[in-house]
């Protein structure tokens, strides 16, 4: 049983929360760029947070459900619709009848949307994850982005775990009770949607800590990082976002030996334009590190697209960790709320 890809969209990959544990072998952890949005989509469909879903980039795919299924779409708004016109609500579970075609368009703001299906996407795990690492050619479907004609393996309706099965059955009943042949049903409740800033706004604010080599940059560079706006350059992808803005001058030419880097590392190559590393970044790098974006703000980085404005704001390590833990608490509360909502249907 599966979802069929009719049109792949701009860049659609199967992603989960990554495969940490093999960085020492040179394999990055990868995973969803906006892990928050994927986790919420998973919670809404009764999945474990680490279940694999689809990551849609800038312009979404056209998919056909080959079976009755429960899905949820979160992240950037790509105007999801059922073929035939009806809008598919985001940030809530949606039951789809077999044969339904879901069409996503261009993101109005933000960069990435996530589609979770109850039971998760069941491509075989490789090296501890189902997500796609395109550079290492592992995970997903043959380690590559989706293409037209692909069949995305999903769990058969009869195998769904109890909460998802109960929710799917309830929504199916509701659709049938409507009398007409309804292709879709959703509850009234939803997870709080997130809004994403665009190019016309004040910009996306990323909180950041000083990097190990920040002392090697000029006073002007360190000031400019937190004071000036940067624009996301077109050559940005899951490996990193290239930013254009003031030239960030380093006061030494000394070469660094390669060292560990992580998503959120703001490194500055000799040209002076910073790169913010993202989910698919290499495990090690050799450019000086000017700053490190707080983990809690990586979902915002994931939603920045070429042309968007980024601003950095200083944050202390302790505060960054508090934000990270608060985000986890927030997700626990949301998980409990969704569970209660499913049970009370």
């Amino acid at each position: 049983m599966s979802l069929t890809v009719l049109e792949p969209g701009f860049y659609t990959t199967i992603q989960d929360l990554g495969r940490p544990g093999l960085r020492h072998a040179g394999l990055g952890a990868g995973g969803a760029m906006d892990s928050y949005a994927l986790r919420v989509a998973n919670l809404l469909t009764g999945n474990d947070p680490q279940a694999a879903g689809l990551e849609l980039t800038l312009s979404g795919p056209v998919l056909r459900a080959e079976q009755d299924m429960l899905v949820a779409i979160t992240g950037a708004d790509m105007g999801p619709r059922i073929e035939g016109g009806m809008e598919l609500p985001m940030w809530r579970p949606v039951w789809l009848a077999a044969g339904t075609v879901v069409r996503l368009g261009r993101a109005a703001a933000g960069c990435r949307a996530y589609l979770a299906v109850a039971g998760g996407i069941l491509v075989p795990p490789q090296l501890g994850g189902r997500g796609t690492d395109v550079r290492a050619r592992i995970g997903g479907l043959d380690g590559r982005p989706l293409a037209a004609g692909d069949a995305i393996p999903c769990m058969a309706a009869g195998d769904l775990p109890p909460p998802a099965a109960a929710l799917a059955a309830r929504l199916r009943q509701r659709a049938l009770a409507e009398g007409r042949r309804r292709m879709m049903a959703a509850p009234r409740w939803f997870a709080p949607p997130r809004a994403y800033g665009g190019a016309g706004t004040d910009g996306i604010v990323l909180r950041a800590m000083p990097g190990a080599e920040s002392g090697q940059f000029s006073e002007a560079a360190r000031t400019a990082l937190y004071r000036e706006p940067f624009r996301v350059a077109p050559a940005s992808d899951r490996m990193g976002l290239r930013l254009s803005g003031p030239m960030l001058e380093r006061t030494t030419r000394a070469e660094l030996l390669s060292h560990g880097v992580a998503p959120g590392t703001v490194q500055v190559p000799p040209g002076g334009s910073p790169i913010v590393l993202a989910a698919d970044c290499q495990t090690t790098g050799g450019y000086p590190k000017l700053a490190q974006v707080a983990y809690a703000d990586l979902p915002l980085l994931a939603q920045a697209r070429p042309g968007d404005i980024i601003r950095f704001q200083p944050v202390a390590l302790a505060e960054a960790q508090r934000l990270d833990l608060a985000r986890e608490q927030e997700l626990s509360v949301l998980a409990a709320g969704i569970k209660a909502a499913i049970n009370s249907l």
Partner: peptide
Amino acid sequence: RQVCPLWVEDIVPAYETVTIYYDPF
């Protein structure tokens, strides 16, 4: 690595560093 606590995700030795990736939660 031998005594790796559960909250440690990765241990990456390099030329002059060992980077330890961890999950604060």
